[in-house]
């Protein structure tokens, strides 16, 4: 069943002024429950606007959004319920921390949901575990932590609401490689453990290829493609033309194939590259024997 569905979704900023801008136009999308979706698109393509419609932060200029089978704008008063259902981690979420302790900051969402004290405590500790924060951090001030730790607190603050869908807008921007891998792996294990739907916005084609099952490409306010990683990244020329790319390793294999080596071009991760190389070498070895 589709957990998120949009129909002719459009959004126009500042209509009727010289600043008028169509951020997204006529987006029709169906995202299945439990999918891990990578969202790519160059800066200003409208992807941020699109994802803010999925949890009701922006109201469509026209068109409809369904979450979990319900038209989210049918009852405006209930829009907060949608936000608990679809968790959203913004870019640089650490700038939104405000509480005195890590525990209380993470508890902000669950408290707003009206959970009991016991449930709040449980979901906070669970969320801290998901993002790899030791429970001893609970009483520290979030402002004393390092950048990477702050970000994990902020992500935990959204996970603690136990949303069915988790949207992350460039969760790794500005982190060092170690912090990046850590956060992405934690998101992956969260996805596997809870079976929740993940939308990951990223400019790293490598990360998308490594973690996502499907890729949503937004270009010039429209959905350019929504398909499996293989199918999307096989459209190399089109992606490059719109200012995106395919994973570096795929470019390497594309060049190798162009030069006449018997390798497949359908390689999108380093892991797959290793296997493909071993396969080619093995075949070559067998031919020599």
């Amino acid at each position: 069943m589709a957990i998120i569905k949009t129909e002719h979704l459009s959004h126009v900023y500042s209509p009727g002024t010289p600043f008028e801008k169509t951020a997204i136009g006529d987006v029709n999308l169906e995202i299945e429950q439990g999918d891990f979706v990578g969202v790519i698109g160059h800066t200003g393509s409208g992807k941020s606007t699109l994802i803010q419609h999925l949890n009701g932060l922006l109201e469509p200029t026209s068109g409809k959004v369904w979450v979990d089978g319900k038209d989210i704008w049918e009852n405006k008063k209930q829009i907060r319920q949608v936000r608990f259902l679809v968790g959203m981690v913004f870019q640089y979420p650490e700038y939104q921390l405000f509480e005195e302790t890590v525990f209380r900051d993470i508890a902000f969402g669950p408290t707003n949901m009206g959970l009991s004290e016991e449930e709040i405590k449980q979901s906070v500790l669970e969320a801290m575990e998901f993002v790899g924060l030791d429970p001893s951090y609970a009483d520290k001030s979030p402002f004393d932590l390092s950048g990477g730790q702050k970000r994990r607190v902020a992500i935990a603050g959204v996970i603690a609401m136990r949303p069915k869908v988790l949207i992350l807008d460039e969760p790794t921007a500005g982190l060092d490689p170690k912090g990046r891998d850590m956060i992405l792996n934690q998101i992956k294990s969260y996805h596997e453990k809870t079976g929740s739907t993940i939308l990951l916005v990223s400019h790293s084609m490598e990360d998308i290829a490594k973690f996502a099952k499907k890729v949503l490409v937004i270009n010039q306010s429209k959905v350019f493609a929504y398909d499996t990683v293989e199918k999307v990244f096989s459209r190399r020329e089109e992606l490059i033309e719109m200012g995106l790319n395919i994973p570096q390793i795929s470019n390497v294999f594309h060049t190798l194939a162009q030069k006449g080596y018997p390798v497949s071009e359908r390689v999108y991760t380093v892991q797959a590259a290793k296997e493909e190389l071993l396969r080619v070498l093995r075949e070559r070895g067998a031919a020599h024997d």
Partner: peptide, 13 residues
């Protein structure tokens, strides 16, 4: 606006 969106996303009323 950004901060408001982020806190609203966590259910701030």
């Amino acid at each position: 606006d950004k901060i408001m969106s982020a806190q609203k996303a966590r259910g701030a009323d």
